[in-house]
Every structure is written in C-alpha cells, then in structure tokens.
Nucleic acid binder design. Structure first.
Lengths: 202, 202
DNA sequence: CCTACCGATCGGTAGG
DNA sequence: CCTACCGATCGGTAGG
C-alpha cells in the first residue's frame, strides 16, 4: 500500500481519534465502576477527558457503545490471559493454581474495567447482552473442565462437588482484593490457593 | 393505653401506611437489584405498586430514603441472623459452618435486598454511607474473630492466613447461588463448607 | 471540537 | 391518592 502524504495525514488523524477513543473508554470505565452505568453521565465522561459532552460523539456512537466496548474488550483480554493456562497440558491442580494467579494479575492491572465487566454488564441490551452471557458461560466451563479432569484423574479430591468447587475457585478469582502496597498480587493468589488447596481444617 | 375509636382509626391508618411503605420498599428492592439504583425511576417503583410516582411521597420522603431503609434493614436482619451463631460458645469450625448456613439461608429468602446491600449501597451518601461501611467492617470482624480463635486453639489449620481465610468464607457466603429447585439452600451451604473445610487436593 | 439546541425524563412539590 | 406542574438534567444532534 502507498503512503503518500494524504494517506499519511488520514492515518495520523485515525490514530489521534483512536487515542482519544481509548482515553474516553478509560475515563468511562473509571466512572462506571464508581457511579454505575446510569449514575455516570456523558457530561461526567467528557469532563474527565477535557471535552464537552457533544464532542464525545465524534469518537463514539452513543453511551451504550462505550459499555459494549469496555465489557467486550475486557472479557476478550481476560480470556486471552487465562485460557492458555487452563488449556495447557499439565496437572489440573497446577493449571488451576496458575489460572487463579493469571486471573488475579489481570484483575489487579484492570481494576476499573474488571469491575464494569462484573457488575455493569447487566445494563447491556440486545445482542451484546447475549454475547456477554455466553462468554461468561464459556469462561466458567473453561474452569469447570479443569476441575472435572482433576477429579477424574485423581489429582483433586475424588469426592469433590465439581460445580461447587468451580464456583469457589471463580469466587476466589473475582474476589475484590484490596490490592494494597503490603503484598503484591502474586502473594494474594498464593494465599488464596493455599486456603482452597488445603482447606480450613488441619 | 386507651384505644378509643379515634385512636383506633389513627392506628389503622398508620398500619395501612406502614403496609404500603413495606410494599414500596419491596418493589424498590426488586427494581434496584435488577436495574440499579439510578436505573430504576420513581415512576417504575410506583407502577409496581399501582401508584403514580407523586403518591409515593405520602409514604416515603425521597428516593435516597428508600435505599437507606432497604440497606439498613437488611444489614440489621442479616446481623441478627448470623451474629448469635458466631458469638456462641462452641467449636470455631462448627460456628463457621453454621454461620455460613445461616448467612446463605437468610440470603436465599432475601435475594433482592441482599443484592442491593452488596452492590447498590455504594450509592448512599453522607451518614448512611458511613454507617454501612462501618457495619460491613463489624460484620467482617465477627467472622475474622471466629477464624482467629479457631487457629489459636488448634481447631483450624495452624498455618492459615486468617484475613485470607475470612475473605474466602465471606466470598462463599456472598456467592450468588442460583438457589434453584434441584437443591435446597442447606445443601448448597453443606457443599461449600465441604470444599472450604477439606480443600481441593486429596 | 464547540455552540446551541432538541424532546424526554428525572426527582420532587402544591393544591385539592 | 391524583392532577398538574416545577426546574434540572438526561442522551443525542445539527451546523459551523
């Protein structure tokens, strides 16, 4: 493809707009996480990126699209970070331990958008709402399968309730750690795995 | 106290209004759980109890008061259901197992208001917001103490990270079980406790 | 990217 | 408990 000065200018403009779009999505994720989708206005989002609300529509189609983009992108990236771990060839218990760490690591560096994915995607409508429901199921099944294999091959407890154990693992993964300064995310993952692995009783 | 016909009439009116108020709070809890505090309008709430939105203000002061009432009442009743179990004189592991069951039993018969307590109380402002933050801390500490005693007296694993274990217990308690027909709440509590108690590995 | 505007809806009130 | 209304703000658009 030829990049003459006009195309180059067009590409630059596209790049600028894509950057702006990214800023807007990041600002929206922060505000949606704090005030909820309906509690954060286009005015609020504009203010956070130094634009008047009308100018936002140069970069995004409407408010719903912002939510779709945040939730969809976050779900896709979380999946990309965790699914390779769970689909690898390894001991199920090792895969689960590492998947927990991968999920928590992703969550700790995407706190706002992860919160939106968890608690605000219910405000999606139509197709996007269906997509995210299906995504959630697929993501659960990914974990479920690893637990299932683990029980069948004796790597995990034989008498384990597989669905319940999967729920508990996902709960540990989705638990909003206050990712504080005193301990890095990896350590949080290790502590949670230690409780889940060995249980509460001696 | 004398109940002449006038006082009786006044009492009846009070009773009627209190009933209406209860209906309104229940309707609001359902709508806040489904659409969020800002996503459910006074119009929606009125419709659900067969009133026009203006008429709601006979029974409640404003929209914020509805949220305060739902969250405050639910927190108080949850505490009343669970704290006696955790404060009793018994083996810590038994108390935790029973507290998990008590919490889940309460949650299963208060699904809407529990959801509002968990996810919409962030929209409270001023004093009520402070109250609920403090309540949450107290409720956590209640569980934390039982875990702490359990570890100290050897009833629970000695090498347990107490804060982390408490988080996992509360996660198991707050996990939104789809309380379906195939299994009662008690069974869900038993399965969760079994995973937490014995751990994932053989 | 801003100015200026749109119709719709918001929470809430007065008067009966 | 309803009718009729209030000012404010909502998401979104046209025109420059």
């Amino acid at each position: 493809m030829q990049y003459d000065r006009f195309e180059s200018a067009a590409t630059q403009e596209q790049g600028q707009s894509a950057l702006r779009r990214g800023e807007i999505l990041a600002a929206a994720a922060t505000l949606f996480a704090e005030h909820g989708f309906h509690g954060a206005s286009m005015r609020d989002i504009g203010e956070r990126v130094g634009l008047l609300k009308g100018s936002l529509y140069v970069h995004i189609a409407n408010k719903d699209e912002i939510l779709v983009e945040i939730v969809g992108d976050t779900a896709r990236r979380l999946n990309a970070a965790v699914s390779p771990v769970l689909l690898a060839t390894a001991r199920p218990s090792d895969k689960l331990r590492m998947a927990l760490k991968a999920h928590l690591l992703f969550a700790s560096s995407n706190q706002n958008s992860m919160f939106v994915l968890q608690h605000e995607s219910k405000h999606l409508t139509g197709q996007p709402h269906m997509w995210i429901c299906e995504w959630r199921l697929r993501y659960q099944q990914l974990w479920w399968s690893a637990v299932d294999v683990g029980v069948r091959c004796g790597d995990l407890r034989q008498d384990l309730d597989i669905a319940c154990a999967t729920d508990m693992l996902l709960a540990a993964a989705n638990l909003n750690a206050t990712f504080d300064m005193t301990s890095d995310t990896g350590a949080v993952a290790d502590r949670r795995w230690e409780v889940l692995r060995g249980g509460l009783l001696p």
